[in-house]
Design a protein around this nucleic acid. Sequence first.
DNA 1: CCTTATCTGAACGGTACGTTCCGTTTCCCC
DNA 2: GGGGAAACGGAACGTACCGTTCAGATAAGG
Lengths: 203, 203
Amino acid sequence: MTDRRTSIGNSRNPETHAAILDAAHELLAEHGYAGVSMEAVARRAGAGKPTLYRWWPSKTALLIELYEREKTRALAEIPDLGSAQKELVALIKGVHRFWRKTPAGQAFRSIIAEAQADDAALRSLRDEFLPRGRATATVILDRAQARGEIAPDADRELLLDVLFGFSWYRLLTHRLRDDTGAVERLVAALLAAAKAGGSLAGD
Amino acid sequence: MTDRRTSIGNSRNPETHAAILDAAHELLAEHGYAGVSMEAVARRAGAGKPTLYRWWPSKTALLIELYEREKTRALAEIPDLGSAQKELVALIKGVHRFWRKTPAGQAFRSIIAEAQADDAALRSLRDEFLPRGRATATVILDRAQARGEIAPDADRELLLDVLFGFSWYRLLTHRLRDDTGAVERLVAALLAAAKAGGSLAGD
DNA sequence: CCTTATCTGAACGGTACGTTCCGTTTCCCC
DNA sequence: GGGGAAACGGAACGTACCGTTCAGATAAGG
């Protein structure tokens, strides 16, 4: 959108790269999912469509890179807060805030939506993208197990499925905001079950 | 797809109505979300596009009607099974089976995806479609409260958000199948919390 | 009988997709 | 210093779908 850009020769132009991600960022913030098309991004970025397709095979790939960029900017690791309750609540609420305050929420909604129409996108979402996002939670659960806050045989995957499922549900129905302590109570309930070793423990 | 249909005069032709829903059903089963376009449905049904748009303002509306039709065919009410645990597990597993065995799962994925690109579709999904689906669960929770299985002030909305959030997550990541007793354990954990009146109870 | 509403089919302008070709720029290597 | 090689923007292409409009045909209902 600024001055004219062109090739810088034999290698990739980082300005072009940034301009395209910035354009996607702005379109996402202004018009949501529907406003983001490869054509619109190219127009806004002052780039050629072949340039987009040279670096990103699909719109989903572009959105994923945008999401990761925002993530490293806005989302920090969760430090040791003394209890799994506090840490998990901080994690979930941090993610919700991230989704609300940045275009990342829009991007993520788009990525999920796209995955429902494209099998390859679904596999990449489930097998590469989501596991990366679970890394922070895994650290928290490791600490919790070391503290003895959850049983050694607790079904951690199920616990995370429930927490992220809840988050997805709120995101996809546009209800991230209604925080009447729901996250706190949900985490408390799940931790209680995971500690007892009864219900959320391995089968 | 069968013989030629035409107007039957002054009133709506039920064969046309059925043929369009059947065509959507088949396309959904064969090609998933991506295979369903208003054009493709019209072609397969041997119908005119104006006919589709006369009765359904959007693809989402068509998919919702298709979903409801399948639902009344495949999904029954949950009878009194003696415990909320059994009933909720039966409900959730029934829904998962419904999503797996019929095109309804594809339809529902499409409806959710569409809602991420269209605000009107999102509102209709959240404020009309989903509440209808919660009716069965509400009956179960009423019985549970009458039995004293969950506290009178339990946060029923949160409980359902968690259960359906989990189900959505599994549906949208195409992992409805891996039942290692996950549903049973999740329901048990939530019911325990809702009975204690501590964590899942009203704030 | 004739208004009225339905149906199919064809066509329209608009948007986006993903690709191809072109001419230009500049680095990298010889 | 010269010559690929690869990147860049721009234009155009064919395909697909969108949602709408028009035409022509059908047949119920008053």
